[in-house]
Amino acid sequence: MLAFTTLDGLVVPLDRANVDTDAIIPKQFLKSIKRAGFGPNLFDEWRYLDHGEPGKPNHDRPLNPDFVLNQPRYQGASVLLARENFGCGSSREHAPWALEDYGFRAIIAPSFADIFYNNCFKNGILPIVLDATLVDRLFRECGAIEGYALTVDLARQTVTTPTGEVIHFEVDAGRKHRLLNGLDDIGLTLLQGDKIKAYEERRKIEAPWLFA
């Protein structure tokens, strides 16, 4: 898995609450049997003026000039600033795949939907929860200052603003460790193989119908 240590990235503000995974990557792109290549269709219905389909070339599609990702000042952004309940809806991991493929490695919001939050860590993306008032201020600063960038340090659990203000964020210790080191979850779990086997042996006696 992709590791995350530090990031010094341009910030793009997506000023909408409850951004759902259908908006992040519309359903027609979920027909792919691959894990890569979703970036060009990230936020497809907001980003383009026409209808996107899998297999359709994206480079000559008409862009929606009003959509924030299309504005010249935000090109190359790797930090997404969002509002509450980001990533709600479907469990599709295509959402973090698309965000990562586009180039986002950190997302800052007052809250995230549970499944999306979890899926981010499996794909080298750091979701950062900050207080809503603080996020509101970051939105204002980001809008006011062209080239607004933030430095994210996962080991220290900090976000540093251009003025040098250091903001602390919380992250679960286990998830942090795995993300910092890019560890493969399955490999780690298989180290507990004896315990899994012991659990199964016990359950076969307690609840044999689960092993029919």
Partner: peptide
């Protein structure tokens, strides 16, 4: 509900963290 990485994880280990 789980994401695809966890689908793979359950297939391989029958467990989830």
């Amino acid at each position: 509900g789980i994401g695809t990485s966890e689908v793979e994880h359950v297939l391989a280990t029958q467990c989830l963290w």
